[in-house]
Every structure is written in C-alpha cells, then in structure tokens.
Amino acid sequence: MRRTSPVALVGIAIAGAAIGWLLQVGLTASGAPSFQPPPTLYSVLFILAFGLILLGRPVRRLIRGTARRPVDPFYAMRVLVLAKASSLAGALLVGAAVAFLGYAVSRTGTFAVPAFWPDLLTGLGALALCVAGLVVEWWCRIPPPDPAERPDRSLEQR
C-alpha cells in the first residue's frame, strides 16, 4: 500500500470545502437554517483520533522491536487501512469545516456567531483525525531491508 499523498489530502480537503460551501448555500437559499455541527460530531472526531493512536501503538512497538508479544499481521493490516481511511476522511471533514466556518463568518462579518465555535472545533477534530491517521500510517511502515543482511547477488549473476 502506498503512503497517503499530501496532494491527495489537499485535493480531498478542497472537495470537502466545495461540498460544505454548496451545502450551506443550498440550505439558506431554500429558507432552511444553515448547518451547525452538533457537539457529538467534534467529540467523536477527537475520540476516533485518540483511539486510532491507541490501536497503532502495538504495531509501532513491533516494528521498533520493543513489543512484548507478537502482533497478528491481519491486525496490523487493518490498523493501516483504518489509518489511511482516517486521514482521507479527516481531510474531507477539514475542508467542510473550513467552508462552514467561512460561510458563517462571511454572512455576519464577525466571529461572534453561534456557529463559530462548533465549526472551529469540528475543524480541529477533523484535523486531529487526519494527523492521527498519517502518524499511524507512518508507524505501520516496514523499514527497508538492511543491505548488510542481504546475500551477495554477484554469485547469482554468474
């Protein structure tokens, strides 16, 4: 599996911002109130980021050689896939939260809107999820083989 590209994360965040902005414009154009993230959203984002770090620690210990017991390879693979998915979902939600925040501030011209803190906390929670995903993905990488441990290839070529 390839590591998550920063270009992909920025592209996904831009897509999330476009979707979030269009959602806010569509809601207010139809006469409905604009979307305000509930407290459970940003709470769960922070909890997911913390849980992902906890899930990745055994794999990190195994790779560093400080593990007390072996880790199931399927567990390590699942943690890696969850980390990649978390970084992508976090980037999407960061973009959407920035759009929500920008829309709320642009409508009133001030930061003293009721949606400011929930939007900001959602953005921070999504950023924490994205960063946790990238960190755990980095923890799960296998180091390259040591050239001193490989057999000499000059004998194979003869």
Results as ranks from 00 to 15, higher is better:
residue 2 R to Y: 04
residue 134 L to Y: 03
residue 51 G to N: 13
residue 147 P to C: 01
residue 47 I to M: 14
residue 127 L to Y: 14
residue 87 S to N: 09
residue 109 G to Q: 01
residue 146 D to H: 09
residue 7 V to C: 07
residue 55 L to R: 08
residue 150 R to M: 15
residue 66 T to E: 12
residue 92 L to C: 03
residue 36 Q to T: 15
residue 118 P to S: 04
residue 87 S to Y: 07
residue 22 L to C: 04
residue 19 I to R: 01
residue 137 E to C: 01
residue 18 A to R: 04
residue 15 A to I: 12
residue 121 L to W: 13
residue 86 S to V: 10
residue 112 A to W: 12
residue 132 A to C: 03
residue 74 F to K: 10
residue 17 A to W: 06
residue 153 R to M: 10
residue 96 A to E: 11
residue 149 E to Y: 11
residue 22 L to H: 10
residue 19 I to L: 12
residue 87 S to Q: 13
residue 37 P to I: 10
residue 116 F to A: 05
residue 43 S to K: 10
residue 3 R to M: 11
residue 101 L to C: 02
residue 156 E to T: 13
residue 15 A to E: 06
residue 69 R to T: 09
residue 20 G to K: 09
residue 87 S to K: 11
residue 146 D to Y: 05
residue 149 E to L: 15
residue 152 D to S: 14
residue 58 P to F: 01
residue 150 R to A: 13
residue 75 Y to T: 08
residue 75 Y to F: 14
residue 115 A to H: 06
residue 18 A to H: 03
residue 133 G to D: 12
residue 107 R to K: 07
residue 53 I to Y: 13
residue 3 R to C: 02
residue 105 V to L: 06
residue 48 L to N: 10
residue 59 V to D: 02
residue 67 A to D: 02
residue 24 Q to E: 13
residue 73 P to V: 09
residue 94 V to K: 05
residue 48 L to S: 08
residue 46 F to G: 02
residue 7 V to W: 15
residue 65 G to C: 05
residue 24 Q to I: 03
residue 72 D to M: 00
residue 157 Q to G: 02
residue 133 G to S: 12
residue 77 M to T: 10
residue 19 I to E: 05
residue 57 R to L: 14
residue 39 P to Q: 05
residue 96 A to T: 10
residue 53 I to S: 05
residue 151 P to I: 09
residue 139 W to V: 00
residue 97 A to E: 02
residue 66 T to K: 03
residue 110 T to R: 09
residue 27 L to D: 06
residue 64 R to E: 15
residue 153 R to P: 15
residue 4 T to E: 13
residue 40 T to A: 14
residue 25 V to P: 00
residue 97 A to D: 03
residue 73 P to A: 09
residue 154 S to N: 14
residue 117 W to R: 08
residue 24 Q to L: 02
residue 7 V to P: 02
residue 122 T to I: 04
residue 70 P to Y: 01
residue 80 L to H: 06
residue 10 V to R: 15
residue 102 G to A: 00
residue 30 S to M: 11
residue 114 P to N: 04
residue 53 I to L: 15
residue 2 R to K: 06
residue 144 P to M: 03
residue 2 R to V: 04
residue 55 L to Q: 07
residue 133 G to Q: 12
residue 31 G to R: 11
residue 20 G to M: 07
residue 57 R to D: 09
residue 83 A to P: 09
residue 37 P to M: 07
residue 107 R to H: 00
residue 155 L to W: 13
residue 157 Q to R: 15
residue 40 T to M: 13
residue 93 L to D: 06
residue 74 F to V: 12
residue 70 P to V: 03
residue 148 A to T: 14
residue 110 T to L: 02
residue 106 S to G: 03
residue 63 I to L: 10
residue 68 R to D: 09
residue 96 A to N: 02
residue 20 G to A: 08
residue 107 R to S: 02
residue 53 I to T: 09
residue 70 P to R: 05
residue 48 L to Q: 11
residue 29 A to H: 12
residue 54 L to N: 09
residue 50 F to D: 11
residue 134 L to E: 11
residue 89 A to Y: 08
residue 98 V to M: 14
residue 98 V to T: 10
residue 131 V to F: 12
residue 32 A to I: 06
residue 31 G to I: 11
residue 136 V to F: 07
residue 7 V to E: 15
